[in-house]
């Protein structure tokens, strides 16, 4: 059933479009990074040129990854929202769900198999995108990433949260409404995720209300924690400008407990989704 779902997804135009966009994105990224690698950054001022001379390839790699990361994340998020919100409703709407459920398999198997297909496709796309970014960057600006295994786990946590939310909402709302809500939640989570990191740099100096809202968003929709974990694991371990960026919370690490919470949260949403699916009449 899972393979059937994958087979079906790979035939869809949205997945083909995402694949083309990925190739185009990586092509453009390659072009930009190769151009940057041969650029002369000297500015003609003594102090500025000294500062430039202090920077190594790791710093260029950091800048490149932090520029491309959010764009890649937007592409992956858009794909998982679109295919995740249409998978089950489409099977139901086309009258295929009674057919699948009449076969000797449990509802849980049908729910998870059809549901896991969009997660698997999106995860594969995210691996290609971020893997491509890493490879292209390291060709022109050789560097050692901080923690590659952490990237894999964080990416899964990030996508699982978005996927679980969109799966649940697609069963209770119209397709377009579920897409818009999850896209809105992802954007808000990204904004407050950044604020959360900055607030950590200024303990006790943030208005209490903002702190409460930020923490609420982080815990209600923990997708951003996973995404930040991806960036943290991918960036160079020894870039000079890391400390400066850390001041803005850009390169801060993500505690493993946050990822565990993201997985737990996804499991709760999936369970609610399954509870709804199990009670549905087809």
């Amino acid at each position: 059933m899972f393979l059937n779902g994958i087979e079906q997804l790979l035939r869809r135009k949205i997945v083909l479009t995402a694949a083309i966009a990925t190739v185009a994105f990586l092509g453009l990224y390659w072009w930009g990074v190769s151009a940057a690698s041969s650029a002369d950054l000297s500015m003609g001022h003594g102090e500025a040129d000294m500062a430039v001379d202090m920077l190594g390839p790791e710093d260029a790699a950091l800048a490149a990854i932090l520029t491309a990361g959010p764009l890649a994340a937007t592409l992956v998020t858009a794909l998982i929202i679109v295919i995740g919100s249409t998978m089950l409703p489409e099977e139901i709407g086309q009258g295929r769900m009674p057919f699948w459920l009449s076969l000797p398999q449990t509802r849980l198997k049908v729910y998870l198999s059809l549901g896991l297909a969009p997660l698997a496709v999106s995860y594969a796309l995210a691996l290609i995108l971020f893997g491509g970014i890493f490879l292209i960057t390291s060709i022109y600006f050789p560097f050692t990433a901080r923690n590659i295994p952490f990237v894999f786990i964080s990416m899964l946590a990030w996508l699982t949260v978005v996927w679980a939310a969109v799966m649940l909402l697609s069963l209770v709302l119209k397709k377009i409404a579920s897409m818009l809500i999850v896209f809105f939640l992802s954007s808000v989570a990204s904004l407050f995720g950044g604020l959360y990191e900055i607030m950590k740099m200024f303990p006790g100096e943030t208005p209490k209300a903002l702190e409460t809202i930020t923490h609420t968003v982080i815990y209600v929709f923990p997708a951003d924690r996973g995404y930040r974990g991806v960036l943290y694991g991918l960036i160079p371990a020894d870039a000079v400008i890391t400390e400066n960026l850390a001041f803005f919370g850009v390169t801060a690490s993500v505690p493993s407990l946050h990822l565990v919470y993201a997985f737990f949260w996804s499991l709760v949403l999936l369970s609610i989704g399954y509870w709804k699916f199990r009670r549905m009449d087809f």
């Binding site: 059937n4 087979e7 009258g95 295929r96 009674p98 076969l103």
Partner: peptide, 25 residues
Amino acid sequence: YLPENVTFPSWATPEVLFRQLERIR
């Protein structure tokens, strides 16, 4: 079971659909 008005994916051939069913069964 053959439901009334079931719509299989338009790209799928009978061979592909049968292979999918065999996988499940």
